[in-house]
Amino acid sequence: MARKRKYAMIIDTKRCVGCSACVYACKSENNVPEGFCRDWIVQRIEGDYPKLTMLNRSERCQHCENAPCVSNCPTTASHYGGDGTVQIEPDLCTGCKACIAACPYDARYIHPEGYADKCSFCQHRLKQGLKPACVTVCPTKTLHLVDLNSNDGEAEKLMRGREVVQDKVHAGTMPKLFWLM
């Protein structure tokens, strides 16, 4: 039996320059309609001049292992993809918005065609053996899609010696975006 994948994303904030190429690549790859986004950049500036620090964070759906959007979906439109991702089946979605209310990360929006939409880790590309569009386009190699179940050591190599931050872990969602500080 084939090994079950568990995709996650490791994001190196030291490399990120906040160029938003990931956002535009995603919009183009997934035909994200105007006025919406599947991923976004948060820029945080702290301190007093001249001692300022800037942090750029590329953010998207956390593909939680214990996803409240999945447990609150009344029609199973939001579901676990079986490869560590959380996916949406537009054909099952009624647009009731329970998943949007349930998401602690505000990762979802309603597509003008009437279904909930969000980052899918470009599942259509993963199936072809490609990386997500944002990962492919990132000019500073900030974004890394990793398989936490694999033995290739990629995730460990990236995280070694670095402070690793996750968002709202206390929500109990077991998120799968890891930011390297």
Binding site: N72, P74, T75, L92, A98, E113, G114
Partner: peptide, 22 residues
């Protein structure tokens, strides 16, 4: 309020015990 009104019947193709809406 439903964004996809033609899919209203989808509520009755599943029972999700963790979903109050279900």
């Amino acid at each position: 309020d439903l964004e996809n009104k033609f899919h209203v019947w989808r509520f009755y193709t599943a029972f999700v015990w963790t979903s109050p809406m279900s």
